[in-house]
Design a protein around this nucleic acid. Structure first.
Lengths: 383, 383
DNA sequence: GGAGTAAGTTTTACTACGAAAGATATTCGA
DNA sequence: TCGAATATCTTTCGTAGTAAAACTTACTCC
C-alpha cells in the first residue's frame, strides 16, 4: 500500500527518471519503447530507469494496449496510478469559494462551493479551510492544496494584491497551512488555469499557445517553448482595458469599448439591464441571444466581435498555435462564434496562418481545477 | 595558424564543449572559474573541457584581466578569436542592397551599398553577389553569408513571399550560393535583427524581451525563455495594421490610424508633404520637429504616441523585461520620447511594472548586421 | 510449427562528471 | 622578506549514466 503519510514529492527522482515519470503523467500510458523514442534514450536505459520506478510503485505496467494487433512482441505500457494521490483546488472569487478534488491526472472527482459573506483574510481563510476539510474527507491521500485568485501572488504564497477582495500583502499560504495542516500553494488564477490547460487541457499537444479568459474580468496567459510566460506582470489582466471597439460602452474607469466594458459578464448584464429595465443573469442574456432576441443578440455579438479582436492581438504578438478561450464567461465564444470569427479575421493579416481556436469547459470548477493543477505541479516538480 | 579553408562549424563540439564556447562567444572573455559558475560544472570539468578547445585554437587565453587586484591566484580569462572568422550580412530592401562585414562577435568592420534598379530574382541576386564579392575581398576568412529581407522565408532558404519585391517562391539561397560559391543563409529581416539583439545587442542580458522596429514597415520580434518566438507567422509584420489612433491618417489599405499609417517613414513623409506642399525626407521631418516646427512636431508626436501604444500592446501580451526599439526609423523614439512615454503609460496597467525601453542604433547597417548574425548563428549552431 | 517482427532485458565497455586533494600564483599583513 | 590567506587551476579517482550489441520473449502471419 502506498504510504498515506507525508507527501514524498517526485523531486528525489534523478533527472531522467523524473523526466520519464512526467512524460507518463502527461501523455498517458506509454510503452518503454515509446518512451525511448520520445526521450532519445536507448532501450537499455529504459529498462534500467523504469525498473526502480515500477518497484517503488510510482509506475505500474498497465494492461496490454487492447486494440493494436501488430507483429512483434506486444508492448507493455507503463502508467502512473492516478488516484494514488488526490489534490484539492480552490478558487476564491469576490463572493464565493469554489473547490474541487482531483486525481494526479487532474480529473475532478468531487466539487463543492461556499458563499463568501466576509472578505477579511482570516474569515476567508476559515471558509477555505472548511471547504478543504469537507472535500479532503471524501478521498484518501490528499497530497496538497492549491488555491487561486485574481491578483498578484508572490513566490512565497503571499497575496500582494487582490482587488476583488481588497487585499494587500496577505500571507494566505501561511493562514491556510495553519488551518488545514496540509501543504498549500497559492497562485494567480489565470496562470493556474493556463498551466492546467498546458498540462491537462487543450494546450497539451502544443508548445506554444495562449489562453484568453472572460468572466468577471479578462485575462491572458501565454505558453511559449513549453513554458509559461512569467514575470512580475503575468496574469494581472494587463489587457483588461485594451481598446476593442471605439463605439462600445464605457467601463467603470471610463475607457470606451475596452475589454472590460465589452467582455466581462458584469458589463454585459449591465448593458442589457440598462436597455430593458430588468436585470438578467449572464447566462440568461446568452440564452436570449441564442433564441433570437434582438437586443441581447446585439450586445452579445458586439462582445463576440470584441473577443475576436482581442484574440487577434494576442495571436499577432504571441504567435500561438492555438488560442484557448476559457473562464466562466467562455460560453460567449459559442453563442457569438460568427461575430468572434469576423472580429478575428478583420484583425489578422490576410496572408497569415490563423490560429486554431478551442473553447474550454466554462464554469468555476475549471478555475478550481486550475488551482489543483498548481498543487500537482508543485508536488511533481517539487518547487 | 588557423586554417583558412572550408569552414568547420562548431557543431562537432559535444554538448558541454559547445555550451562553453557559446558562453564565451556571447559573454566575452571568461575565466574557467567564472564559466564553472555559469554552467554549474565543477572546476575539474572545466580544465578537462577547455583543454581541447584551447589546443584546437578555438579558445585562447586572453591576457590577465588588468584591473582586478584580488587575493588568490589570478584568473586566466578565455576568449574566442573574433577575427578568426568573418561574416557578410546583406539586407535587401525595395530599392537598395546594404551589406556589412562582421567578426565572429558581430562587430562591423566594413560596409557597402548598391542601388537596386531591377527587382527580378536573378538581377537582385547578381547585385547581392557583386556586393558580397566586394565586401568579402576586404577581409580574410569569410565563413558564411547572411541575407535578410522583409517577407516569409522557408527553412530551406526559399523566399516564399516578399511584398516589397513582388516575389513569390524565389529560391534565393540557391541563386546566391551559385553566384558567390559560399554558404548562404536567408532569413526574415525582423527575426534576424531580433536574433542580433538577443546575442549581441540590448537583449543580451535578458531572457525575455521584445524588439519593435519602425521604418519602411513595422515589425515585432519576441524572445521568450531565451529563444525567439517562431512559427509560420513570425516576422511578418502582423501588427502592421493594428489600430493605434482612431483619428489618425489612413494607410494605403484604408485602415485609419493603423501602425503603418502612423509609424512608417513613408507615411510620415507623406503626411508632412500633404500639409506643406513640398517633400521632405524622414530625417528632415525629425530635424524640423526637433527644431520646433509646429506641423512636424504634431506629426512626429502623433507617431510617438502611437509607438508608445504599440509598445504597450506588445508589452502587455509578451511581458518583456525590455522593449528595444529598432529599425531605420528608430530615431523617432528619441525625437518624440515624451509622446512615446505618454502613449505607453496610458495603455499600461497603472499597477504593472513598466518595461525598460532601449533604442537601438538605427540605419540600414543594423539590418545588415542582423543578417550577418544569422550567418554567425548558423555557423556556430550548425543548422 | 516455423519465419518474421518488434519489445524488452542483459551484458559490456565507455564516457562524463563531481569530489577531493594538490599545485600555482597572487595579495596581505607581520 | 617571509609566511598566511585566498582563489584559480590541475590532477586523480570513483561513480553514475549511457549506447551498443547480443540476447530473450511474445506475439502475428503464413
Amino acid at each position: 500500500m502506498v504510504t498515506s503519510g507525508t507527501a514524498q514529492p517526485w523531486v528525489p527522482l534523478a533527472g531522467q527518471s523524473h523526466r520519464l515519470a512526467l512524460e507518463v503523467l502527461l501523455h498517458g500510458p506509454l510503452s518503454r519503447a515509446e518512451l525511448a523514442r520520445r526521450t532519445d534514450l536507448s532501450a537499455g536505459s529504459l529498462t534500467r530507469l523504469t525498473k526502480p520506478l515500477v518497484e517503488a510503485g510510482l509506475l505500474v505496467e498497465a494492461g496490454p494496449g487492447a486494440g493494436d494487433l501488430r507483429p512483434g512482441r506486444p508492448s507493455q505500457p507503463l502508467d502512473i496510478v492516478p488516484d494514488a494521490h488526490h489534490f484539492v483546488g480552490v478558487k476564491i472569487t469576490g463572493d464565493a469559494v469554489h473547490g474541487v478534488v482531483t486525481t494526479l491526472r487532474a480529473d475532478v472527482v468531487a466539487s463543492a462551493r461556499r458563499p463568501l459573506d466576509a472578505r477579511t483574510p482570516p474569515e476567508v481563510a476559515d471558509v477555505v479551510a472548511d471547504l478543504v476539510h469537507e472535500l479532503a474527507g471524501q478521498v484518501p491521500n490528499v497530497t496538497a492544496v492549491g488555491v487561486s485568485l485574481g491578483g498578484h501572488v508572490l513566490p512565497d504564497g503571499t497575496v500582494q494584491r487582490a482587488p476583488f477582495l481588497g487585499w494587500t500583502d496577505v500571507p494566505l499560504k501561511q493562514l491556510l497551512e495553519e488551518r488545514t495542516v496540509r501543504p498549500v500553494v497559492v497562485a494567480n488564477d489565470v496562470l493556474a488555469l493556463t498551466e492546467a490547460t498546458h498540462w491537462f487541457g487543450e494546450g497539451r499537444a502544443h508548445s506554444q499557445f495562449a489562453l484568453v479568459t472572460v468572466g468577471a474580468g479578462v485575462g491572458v496567459g501565454v505558453v511559449a517553448h513549453d513554458r509559461l510566460l512569467a514575470g512580475p506582470n503575468a496574469g494581472l489582466g494587463l489587457l483588461g482595458h485594451h481598446a476593442l471597439d471605439p463605439l462600445g460602452p464605457p467601463c467603470p474607469l471610463g475607457h470606451r469599448g475596452c475589454a472590460t466594458a465589452m467582455l466581462t459578464t458584469g458589463s454585459i448584464e449591465r448593458q442589457v439591464a440598462a436597455a430593458r429595465g430588468d436585470l438578467l443573469s449572464y447566462g440568461e442574456v446568452l440564452d436570449l441571444a441564442d433564441a433570437g432576441d434582438e437586443l441581447a443578440r446585439r450586445v452579445v455579438d458586439d462582445a463576440g466581435r470584441a473577443l475576436g479582436r482581442l484574440v487577434a492581438v494576442v495571436s499577432n504578438v504571441a504567435l500561438p498555435e492555438v488560442v484557448v478561450l476559457g473562464g466562466e464567461g467562455a460560453r460567449l465564444a459559442h453563442v457569438a462564434r460568427a461575430a468572434l470569427d469576423a472580429g478575428l479575421a478583420g484583425d489578422l493579416d490576410p496572408l497569415a496562418e490563423p490560429p486554431a481556436l478551442a473553447v474550454q469547459a466554462a464554469g468555476f470548477d475549471a478555475w478550481a481545477r486550475g488551482a489543483a493543477v498548481i498543487a500537482i505541479q508543485t508536488y511533481v516538480l517539487g518547487r
